[in-house]
Design a protein around this nucleic acid. Sequence first.
DNA 1: TGTTAGCACTCTGGTTCGGTGAGTGCTAAA
DNA 2: TTTAGCACTCACCGAACCAGAGTGCTAACA
Lengths: 350, 350
Amino acid sequence: MSSETRHNDSQVSERALHFLKVLVGRYIRDGQPVGSRTLAKDTGLDLSPATVRNVMADLEDLGLVASPHTSAGRVPTAAGYRLFVDSLLTVRPPTDDDIASLRLCLESRSDVKTLIETASNLLSGITHLAGVVMLPRHERNVFRQIELLPLSGNRVLAILVTSEGEVHNRIIATERRFSPAQLEQATNALNGLFSGQDIKDVRKRLLEDLKRTHENMDQLMMRAMLLAHELVESAEHKDDCYIAGQTNLMEFGELASMERLRQLFDAFYEKRGILHILDRCIAAEGVQIFIGEESGYDLLDDCSLVTRAYRVDDEVVGVLGVIGPTRMDYERVIPIVDVTARLLAAALRQ
Amino acid sequence: MSSETRHNDSQVSERALHFLKVLVGRYIRDGQPVGSRTLAKDTGLDLSPATVRNVMADLEDLGLVASPHTSAGRVPTAAGYRLFVDSLLTVRPPTDDDIASLRLCLESRSDVKTLIETASNLLSGITHLAGVVMLPRHERNVFRQIELLPLSGNRVLAILVTSEGEVHNRIIATERRFSPAQLEQATNALNGLFSGQDIKDVRKRLLEDLKRTHENMDQLMMRAMLLAHELVESAEHKDDCYIAGQTNLMEFGELASMERLRQLFDAFYEKRGILHILDRCIAAEGVQIFIGEESGYDLLDDCSLVTRAYRVDDEVVGVLGVIGPTRMDYERVIPIVDVTARLLAAALRQ
DNA sequence: TGTTAGCACTCTGGTTCGGTGAGTGCTAAA
DNA sequence: TTTAGCACTCACCGAACCAGAGTGCTAACA
């Protein structure tokens, strides 16, 4: 890594890096290509525009900046942002107001769903970007109790409660009708067998049992186990996330074409692609940043993601973050995502 | 009402009405003001543009059409659409394909939530507008069983199951810790008291009991009843709806300004306003149409709603429909909304 | 050798201008 | 009552144009 830095140093002078930093900051601020004159003023060093132009030419050769057309200023490229984010930026801690509202909204002991929604709304509200929070996923999730209740028709309502107080339920149509007594019997059997065990193990055992004792099990028990299996599956990968403030992205000129917005909103609606990216962050420590195409999701090509995993006692994990244009205020957004993740984790912990 | 019709007849000639119908149809088709020449051709009657112009002047005086500027054609006003919808349109039944996909997707016996989502997606997919489905609301909703489970900390998980197989659950922090045995006792007591009763009655009785026997009830029972009350409340007004295909509205030129879209999408996000409109349709028979400002919701001023209540055995009711620009293809959309409501009801009934 | 001034050049964005086409209202004739 | 004719009005389009911002290059300078 130090060789990497040296490599950079040899290619890009200290001064050029400083220019890049100022340029990125400026471009993030007002969204327009930055010309040599403006930059010359902004750097603080007393240099002429011509000198700046020379430096810019170098940076352009390195692929760190580009100009939209001949006589516009320069804008950072994805690589430029990357360098900026990796080694140039000086984060700006959230204002007291921001911290205060985060604390206030996330302190109260609400249920998980509300907390998730609040966090997402806070993220989008404070950053003026789109906020996204993935539902917490239990690493160790314990089967607590199952309940099978008869409904009208040949339908059965199955309810599964895990140790963390999550409730999963599903209605399933069975081939034949079971009496309440039969269902109660099955319920008791299942609870006796699995209560207190890890969900993953339960699933495994259910599958094995189903295969092995295929014939010599009475039909009810068989059916009940299938039911249980379905439920346990749904409890395991509860793939969902909550996105807020999509419309904030309409403010940004670079995304403001109808087609582009449509793609973007469709991506938000069909959350899978985004979930997939978030999934990759779940194991990472600290704030993760995907700039432009780095996310690997073409619909987010001119967007950046700033994410952070949150963890509760190493048992529950999730990811949250924001989505915005590549031109986002990283120095401000990063610490906000960071602290939101911490506070959400704390709120979930209690 | 017949006087209303006569009134109309006396003011607007049969021919003028026909012109209006053709004009509306044409404008709906390609979204541009219709001129006298085009209209003259389209009506079928062999008339000159000049004649048409005279008629249009009459229609304009009546406030049924307007021209965006001096030398554009005419477009229907809200009143024009209203007249069209009330007495001019000839509905076009859905294509076999549409019916087929509706049948296919709504036939399968899935759970309620999936059905709702499917219906909404179908509506938006087929009409190319935004689809909206309100969650079914049980008119008669019977308390079936409640379950109170201890969690870590002083928290209790309360689960309420209604006769229809709906599961409501909530985690509540209590002041002091209750043992599993205590909770089980409370559970049994509550179930004994309320099982099989209508939710509304349960709520009433809970409130009364809480007030009356305020002192001489042990703290646990008191707390449990409060819990139950909260749950029952949430079971009662489960105000939510599912909206799909918002982005379809971006295709329509008349809504395609950034501000306008932003308002619209924010309205979709913050569903309350829309729910409020849907609520008003819940008692109505058949398809209901709100044109432009008729909805009373300013954010939907240049939009129309086509809705229809669906009913299951007079016990469950909900509303579904589509939202689109006032310039929507009513003749096609109305029967689609109609049949979707019927099919959804049928799917929920089983 | 790095920096600067000067200059020619390029490209965008806004403005102006005239022409065209679609459409209107009005009047007078059929 | 309908129609033809006519003058008029706009929106839209493309051309021309200018101003402004910014560049690259070259040559001079410290």
